[in-house]
């Protein structure tokens, strides 16, 4: 499979002088084409910083990031803007739709910024708005939509340019559980129908359970990684909970986590295991290869435990 994103030994410091905080600590990971990856971790683990440096909104202190083989860390500001415009799609917690533009204008804005042909833009707008069920909202302003509708519009905007990578930062953060579920189904359909490669930061295990792969960050490093394989979402959810417990030392460490829904509250199935590990996940299976939980590799520091 083609590697869309490669993060190599990236370090990010904030502050200066005697007050320096290390947000990313030599992190490495890769995302393959068509993969739906969730990044989870406690507050201050570096997940938002990771997303920001991949989004080129922030600069790395060390290491390199490659997207489709291009080194983002070497690009200049102007190139980065073009890169963001052409290669990335964004979905944010606060929707980040422009309140002065109609929903349709918001969705088609990335194509306009590319100076795409008007007729093609219209065609593409129809296509994505139909797929994401916002076609009848195109002439409304964002303020006239519900949170879920706004976020679907934001998703439509994120994929309208067929970006190499869609970055989502806590996309369900401002939604209730029903809309969160609907949005995650939208993400899955984006992933399946449009083949979008998605990298999503979330603190919500339910939301993370929709992903093909879940990366756990702690102290600026990849601490653990889960693959969905053929298993059900409930199963993945339980694994996430287990890892979370191990990561934070409690059953549910994530801030703002919602109560378990009945469908996700089932006990973890037999054979589920959690991999405790530090950086270096090179041996991990690709999404959809059906290996279930990732195998233990040489770099892992802890042992595989049975929950």
């Amino acid at each position: 499979m083609e590697k869309v994103l490669e993060v190599r030994n990236v370090t990010k410091y904030y502050g200066g002088g005697s007050v320096v905080a290390k947000a990313l600590d030599g992190i490495s990971l890769s995302v393959e084409k068509g993969e739906f990856t969730a990044v989870m971790g406690p507050s201050g683990s570096g997940k938002s910083t990771l997303l920001n440096v991949i989004a080129t909104i922030d600069r790395v202190s060390a290491g390199e990031i490659l997207l489709r083989g291009k080194r983002l860390t070497e690009m200049k500001e102007k190139e980065l803007s073009v890169f963001r415009r052409d290669q990335l799609g964004f979905v944010f917690q606060e929707y980040n739709l422009l309140d002065t533009l109609t929903v349709g204008e918001n969705i088609v804005l990335p194509l306009n910024l590319r100076r795409a042909d008007y007729q093609e833009s219209r065609k593409k707008l129809e296509q994505v708005s139909e797929a994401l069920e916002v076609a009848d909202q195109l002439d409304k302003f964002p303020g006239e939509l519900s949170g879920g509708q706004r976020q679907r519009a934001a998703c439509a905007r994120a994929i309208i340019t067929d970006p190499a990578l869609v970055l989502a930062d806590e996309p369900t953060g401002a939604l209730d559980s029903r809309n969160s579920k609907k949005l995650m189904e939208t993400f899955r359909s984006m992933n399946r129908a449009f083949g979008s490669t998605i990298l999503m930061v979330t603190h919500d295990p339910v939301v993370g359970s929709y992903a093909d792969r879940v990366l756990f960050l702690k102290d600026g490093k990849v601490w653990n990684e889960l693959y969905r394989g053929d298993r059900s979402r409930q199963a993945v959810y339980r694994e996430i909970m287990a890892v979370s417990a191990a990561l934070g030392g409690e059953g549910a460490f994530m801030e703002g986590e919602e109560p378990l829904a009945a469908e996700t509250a089932a006990p973890m199935p037999e054979g589920t295991s959690v991999c405790y590990g530090g950086p270096g996940m090179e041996g991990a299976p690709a999404a959809g290869e059906g290996r279930g939980l990732m195998g233990k590799d040489a770099s892992m520091e802890g042992e595989v435990s049975k929950c």
């Binding site: 989004a55 909104i57 500001e77 102007k78 980065l80 803007s81 073009v82 890169f83 963001r84 415009r85 052409d86 990335l88 964004f90 944010f92 980040n96 739709l97 422009l98 309140d99 002065t100 804005l109 990335p110 910024l113 905007r157």
Partner: peptide
């Protein structure tokens, strides 16, 4: 609003 444009890839010049 301009921050959103920045994130959507509109450069400083734009």
């Amino acid at each position: 609003r301009y921050e959103i444009l920045f994130r959507l890839g509109l450069g400083e010049e734009g």
